[in-house]
Protein backbone atom coordinates (compact mmCIF):
# COMPACT_ATOMS: atom_id res chain seq x y z
CA UNK A 1 0.00 0.00 0.00
CA UNK A 2 1.17 3.47 -0.73
CA UNK A 3 0.07 6.76 0.78
CA UNK A 4 1.20 9.63 -1.42
CA UNK A 5 1.41 13.14 0.00
CA UNK A 6 -2.00 12.95 1.53
CA UNK A 7 -3.71 15.92 3.11
CA UNK A 8 -7.07 15.36 4.73
CA UNK A 9 -9.37 16.87 7.31
CA UNK A 10 -12.90 17.29 8.56
CA UNK A 11 -15.67 19.77 7.90
CA UNK A 12 -16.96 21.46 4.81
CA UNK A 13 -16.28 24.81 3.23
CA UNK A 14 -15.19 27.38 5.72
CA UNK A 15 -15.41 24.99 8.65
CA UNK A 16 -12.81 22.70 7.08
CA UNK A 17 -9.97 21.81 9.43
CA UNK A 18 -6.97 20.08 7.98
CA UNK A 19 -5.71 17.28 10.22
CA UNK A 20 -3.15 15.52 8.02
CA UNK A 21 -0.44 17.37 6.13
CA UNK A 22 1.63 15.72 3.41
CA UNK A 23 1.63 12.24 4.87
CA UNK A 24 3.73 10.07 2.62
CA UNK A 25 4.73 6.46 3.17
CA UNK A 26 4.68 2.90 1.88
CA UNK A 27 3.64 -0.24 3.68
CA UNK A 28 5.38 -3.26 2.21
CA UNK A 29 4.05 -6.77 1.98
CA UNK A 30 4.55 -8.74 5.17
CA UNK A 31 5.68 -5.71 7.09
CA UNK A 32 4.55 -4.39 10.45
CA UNK A 33 4.69 -0.62 10.38
CA UNK A 34 4.18 1.16 13.68
CA UNK A 35 2.55 4.56 14.01
CA UNK A 36 3.12 6.37 17.25
CA UNK A 37 2.01 9.75 18.51
CA UNK A 38 0.01 11.47 21.21
CA UNK A 39 -3.72 12.05 21.25
CA UNK A 40 -4.88 14.50 18.62
CA UNK A 41 -1.83 13.98 16.40
CA UNK A 42 -3.93 12.51 13.59
CA UNK A 43 -3.19 8.78 13.98
CA UNK A 44 -6.84 7.80 13.88
CA UNK A 45 -7.62 10.24 11.10
CA UNK A 46 -4.90 8.64 9.03
CA UNK A 47 -6.41 5.19 9.39
CA UNK A 48 -9.87 6.53 8.59
CA UNK A 49 -8.49 8.28 5.53
CA UNK A 50 -6.83 5.10 4.29
CA UNK A 51 -10.13 3.27 4.67
CA UNK A 52 -12.02 6.00 2.85
CA UNK A 53 -14.10 7.23 5.80
CA UNK A 54 -12.44 10.63 5.57
CA UNK A 55 -12.09 12.16 2.08
CA UNK A 56 -8.64 13.12 0.84
CA UNK A 57 -8.06 16.78 0.13
CA UNK A 58 -5.01 16.15 -2.03
CA UNK A 59 -2.62 13.29 -2.70
CA UNK A 60 -3.75 9.71 -2.99
CA UNK A 61 -4.00 6.37 -1.26
CA UNK A 62 -3.08 3.44 -3.49
CA UNK A 63 -4.05 -0.08 -2.52
CA UNK A 64 -2.02 -2.66 -4.37
CA UNK A 65 -3.90 -5.55 -2.80
CA UNK A 66 -7.53 -5.88 -1.75
CA UNK A 67 -9.20 -3.30 0.44
CA UNK A 68 -7.62 -3.12 3.92
CA UNK A 69 -9.54 -4.15 7.00
CA UNK A 70 -9.44 -2.73 10.48
CA UNK A 71 -9.15 -3.84 14.09
CA UNK A 72 -10.56 -1.18 16.39
CA UNK A 73 -9.39 0.05 19.77
CA UNK A 74 -12.52 -0.33 21.80
CA UNK A 75 -13.62 -3.96 21.74
CA UNK A 76 -16.87 -2.90 23.39
CA UNK A 77 -18.18 -0.77 20.57
CA UNK A 78 -16.68 -2.51 17.57
CA UNK A 79 -19.00 -5.51 17.71
CA UNK A 80 -22.73 -5.07 17.22
CA UNK A 81 -24.16 -5.72 20.71
CA UNK A 82 -27.43 -7.09 19.36
CA UNK A 83 -26.03 -9.86 17.16
CA UNK A 84 -24.40 -13.19 17.77
CA UNK A 85 -20.71 -13.60 17.00
CA UNK A 86 -21.52 -16.09 14.25
CA UNK A 87 -23.93 -13.68 12.59
CA UNK A 88 -21.39 -10.87 12.65
CA UNK A 89 -18.63 -13.07 11.26
CA UNK A 90 -20.88 -14.25 8.45
CA UNK A 91 -22.12 -10.80 7.47
CA UNK A 92 -19.30 -9.99 5.01
CA UNK A 93 -19.71 -13.44 3.44
CA UNK A 94 -23.45 -12.87 3.18
CA UNK A 95 -22.65 -9.71 1.24
CA UNK A 96 -20.62 -11.83 -1.15
CA UNK A 97 -23.63 -14.16 -1.60
CA UNK A 98 -21.82 -17.18 -0.22
CA UNK A 99 -24.26 -19.99 0.68
CA UNK A 100 -25.15 -20.54 4.33
CA UNK A 101 -23.33 -23.82 4.89
CA UNK A 102 -20.08 -22.51 3.43
CA UNK A 103 -20.42 -19.34 5.48
CA UNK A 104 -20.76 -21.22 8.73
CA UNK A 105 -17.83 -23.42 7.86
CA UNK A 106 -15.62 -20.47 7.09
CA UNK A 107 -16.68 -18.60 10.24
CA UNK A 108 -15.85 -21.65 12.34
CA UNK A 109 -12.45 -22.03 10.71
CA UNK A 110 -11.67 -18.37 11.24
CA UNK A 111 -12.65 -18.53 14.91
CA UNK A 112 -10.32 -21.49 15.32
CA UNK A 113 -7.50 -19.46 13.80
CA UNK A 114 -7.88 -16.79 16.46
CA UNK A 115 -8.06 -19.35 19.24
CA UNK A 116 -11.79 -19.51 19.92
CA UNK A 117 -13.89 -22.67 19.64
CA UNK A 118 -17.14 -22.86 17.71
CA UNK A 119 -19.31 -22.44 20.82
CA UNK A 120 -18.52 -18.72 20.45
CA UNK A 121 -20.59 -18.59 17.24
CA UNK A 122 -23.75 -18.56 19.32
CA UNK A 123 -22.61 -16.10 21.96
CA UNK A 124 -23.26 -12.40 22.00
CA UNK A 125 -20.47 -9.80 22.35
CA UNK A 126 -21.90 -8.82 25.75
CA UNK A 127 -20.95 -12.22 27.20
CA UNK A 128 -17.34 -11.99 26.03
CA UNK A 129 -14.27 -10.59 27.77
CA UNK A 130 -12.28 -7.77 26.20
CA UNK A 131 -9.62 -10.17 24.93
CA UNK A 132 -12.17 -12.53 23.40
CA UNK A 133 -13.87 -9.64 21.65
CA UNK A 134 -10.60 -8.48 20.22
CA UNK A 135 -10.01 -12.00 18.90
CA UNK A 136 -13.41 -11.86 17.22
CA UNK A 137 -12.52 -8.46 15.72
CA UNK A 138 -9.35 -9.92 14.28
CA UNK A 139 -11.31 -12.84 12.84
CA UNK A 140 -13.72 -10.39 11.18
CA UNK A 141 -10.88 -8.43 9.64
CA UNK A 142 -9.39 -11.60 8.16
CA UNK A 143 -12.50 -13.41 6.97
CA UNK A 144 -12.73 -11.54 3.67
CA UNK A 145 -9.23 -12.58 2.79
CA UNK A 146 -7.72 -9.15 3.23
CA UNK A 147 -3.98 -9.25 3.82
CA UNK A 148 -3.59 -5.67 4.99
CA UNK A 149 -4.84 -4.84 8.45
CA UNK A 150 -5.00 -1.43 10.09
CA UNK A 151 -4.89 -1.92 13.84
CA UNK A 152 -5.86 1.24 15.73
CA UNK A 153 -4.65 0.82 19.31
CA UNK A 154 -5.78 -2.82 19.28
CA UNK A 155 -4.35 -3.65 22.72
CA UNK A 156 -4.68 -0.34 24.56
CA UNK A 157 -7.94 -1.15 26.30
CA UNK A 158 -6.79 -4.56 27.51
CA UNK A 159 -5.11 -5.82 30.68
CA UNK A 160 -1.39 -6.48 30.28
CA UNK A 161 -1.60 -10.26 30.32
CA UNK A 162 -4.37 -10.18 27.71
CA UNK A 163 -2.46 -7.52 25.79
CA UNK A 164 0.44 -9.90 25.48
CA UNK A 165 -1.79 -12.73 24.23
CA UNK A 166 -3.33 -10.55 21.54
CA UNK A 167 0.08 -9.28 20.44
CA UNK A 168 1.38 -12.82 20.16
CA UNK A 169 -1.74 -13.87 18.24
CA UNK A 170 -1.31 -10.99 15.79
CA UNK A 171 2.33 -11.89 15.25
CA UNK A 172 1.54 -15.57 14.71
CA UNK A 173 -1.19 -14.71 12.19
CA UNK A 174 1.17 -12.34 10.43
CA UNK A 175 3.71 -15.11 9.89
CA UNK A 176 1.13 -17.72 8.96
CA UNK A 177 -0.78 -15.60 6.46
CA UNK A 178 1.88 -13.13 5.39
CA UNK A 179 -0.15 -10.17 6.59
CA UNK A 180 0.90 -6.53 6.66
CA UNK A 181 -0.07 -4.39 9.61
CA UNK A 182 -0.26 -0.69 10.15
CA UNK A 183 -0.04 -0.85 13.91
CA UNK A 184 -1.14 2.30 15.71
CA UNK A 185 -0.30 2.75 19.37
CA UNK A 186 0.56 5.40 21.89
CA UNK A 187 2.65 2.88 23.83
CA UNK A 188 6.25 3.01 22.64
CA UNK A 189 7.13 -0.29 24.28
CA UNK A 190 4.32 -2.09 22.47
CA UNK A 191 5.52 -0.57 19.20
CA UNK A 192 9.06 -1.69 19.96
CA UNK A 193 7.99 -5.25 20.61
CA UNK A 194 5.73 -5.57 17.59
CA UNK A 195 7.01 -3.55 14.68
CA UNK A 196 9.67 -3.61 11.99
CA UNK A 197 9.50 0.05 11.16
CA UNK A 198 7.96 3.00 12.94
CA UNK A 199 6.61 6.40 12.02
CA UNK A 200 6.38 9.15 14.61
CA UNK A 201 3.54 11.55 14.08
CA UNK A 202 3.05 15.03 15.47
CA UNK A 203 0.35 17.54 14.60
CA UNK A 204 -0.70 15.68 11.46
CA UNK A 205 2.79 15.25 10.08
CA UNK A 206 5.17 12.34 10.08
CA UNK A 207 8.23 13.83 11.75
CA UNK A 208 10.45 10.77 11.74
CA UNK A 209 10.40 7.36 10.15
CA UNK A 210 12.81 4.44 10.31
CA UNK A 211 13.62 0.97 11.56
CA UNK A 212 12.50 0.35 15.12
CA UNK A 213 15.99 -0.19 16.49
CA UNK A 214 17.32 2.94 14.85
CA UNK A 215 14.47 5.14 16.10
CA UNK A 216 14.71 3.86 19.65
CA UNK A 217 18.50 3.93 19.84
CA UNK A 218 19.29 7.10 17.95
CA UNK A 219 16.21 9.26 17.54
CA UNK A 220 16.90 12.27 15.31
CA UNK A 221 13.85 14.47 15.61
CA UNK A 222 13.50 16.43 18.87
CA UNK A 223 9.90 15.32 19.24
CA UNK A 224 10.87 11.66 19.04
CA UNK A 225 13.52 12.29 21.67
CA UNK A 226 11.04 13.96 24.00
CA UNK A 227 8.59 11.08 23.57
CA UNK A 228 11.26 8.53 24.37
CA UNK A 229 12.48 10.53 27.34
CA UNK A 230 8.99 10.78 28.80
CA UNK A 231 7.98 7.16 28.34
CA UNK A 232 8.46 4.94 31.32
CA UNK A 233 10.18 1.78 30.49
CA UNK A 234 10.20 -1.18 32.75
CA UNK A 235 13.68 -1.83 34.07
CA UNK A 236 14.86 -4.98 35.72
Amino acid sequence: MEVRRVCAGYGRGRKYRRILTDVDFCLYKGEILGLVGESGCGKSTLSKTILGFVPVESGQVIHHTSRPQMVFQDPFSSLNPGKKVGWILEEPLRMQKIPAAARREKAEAMLAKVGLDKSFLNRRPGDLSGGQRQRVSIAISLIQGSRLILADEPVSALDVTIQRQIMELMLALQEELGLSYLFISHDLDVIYQMCDRVMVMQKGQVVEEGDVERIFEEPRHPYTRSLLAASLSYRL
Binding site: I32, L171, V190
Partner: peptide
Protein backbone atom coordinates in the same frame (compact mmCIF):
# COMPACT_ATOMS: atom_id res chain seq x y z
CA UNK B 1 5.81 -13.44 37.37
CA UNK B 2 3.17 -13.69 34.67
CA UNK B 3 2.37 -10.01 35.01
CA UNK B 4 6.03 -9.05 34.78
CA UNK B 5 6.56 -11.23 31.75
CA UNK B 6 3.64 -9.55 30.00
CA UNK B 7 4.77 -5.95 30.49
CA UNK B 8 5.81 -4.52 27.17
CA UNK B 9 9.44 -3.50 27.41
CA UNK B 10 12.40 -2.83 25.24
CA UNK B 11 14.52 -5.72 26.41
CA UNK B 12 12.26 -8.20 24.71
CA UNK B 13 11.29 -7.97 21.09
CA UNK B 14 8.39 -10.25 20.20
CA UNK B 15 8.82 -9.70 16.49
CA UNK B 16 11.55 -12.19 15.65
CA UNK B 17 11.88 -12.18 11.92
CA UNK B 18 11.39 -9.02 10.00
CA UNK B 19 9.30 -8.68 6.96
CA UNK B 20 9.58 -6.82 3.76
Amino acid sequence: KKLLAAIPHRGNRLRKKRGR
